[in-house]
Amino acid sequence: MDVYELVRGPLAWVALIVFVAGCLFRLLSTLLTGKKETTLYPSTSFTDGLRSILHGLVPFGSTYMRRQPLFAVVTIGFHLCVIILPIFLLAHIVLWYESWQVLWWSLPDWLADIMAVWIILACIYFLVRRWAVPEVKKITRTTDVLLPVMILLTFLTGFLAYHQWGPYRPMLILHVLSGEILLIAIPFTKLGHMLFVMFSRAYMGAEFGKVLKAREW
């Protein structure tokens, strides 16, 4: 039984199906089972919601980003890289072709390297912050440590496998496995914020903008 074939084949199917189905399930159950708020002034406002989303996306738009500029730079880079790198990495694209005969543009390898290193350093930064900053330490739970560790492991093993530093096959298998664990974790953990941040941001924006006639932080 070939372990690489196992993680490349059946486990990859499982991870992708659980990821897609899980995201759909979480999205639909959140949107459809939410109760209509019984208040005098309902806070549905598309424009306010959109404004708030954009406010949160623009670098140094929100007050927290302005107050913690280093954190803002680290996390903006981290989020951009963590989304762009897995999709546009040559090695992943070659695998998609191997399975489905689809092909798309790939990042140059030097840029992919920089992005991977940024992510690895950012994960270390987040973990140190969880321990060193008191107001963050107070609210840190196991999941808040476990998830950055999983992301760190995934990108670290991928980086090491690409450079062929260390035992190659085990490193590659670990990388594929940690990626699959992450995919499965996304719909069912805090990583699901990638699905929900738009909605919670829009709600806050509508609540502050339409009802309180104020800008939120």
Binding site: D2, Y4, E5, R8, G9, A91, V94, Y97, E98, L103, A161, Q164, Y168, R169, L172
Partner: peptide, 28 residues
């Protein structure tokens, strides 16, 4: 694409049909 499909494709088919001593299937 031709190399990858022909080489790794064959090696993977071999492994899936039980011949574990076939050629490489990973990038490296």
């Amino acid at each position: 694409e031709a190399y990858h499909a022909n080489c790794t494709g064959c090696h993977r088919d071999q492994i899936k049909s039980g011949n574990l001593q076939s050629g490489p299937t990973t990038c490296g």
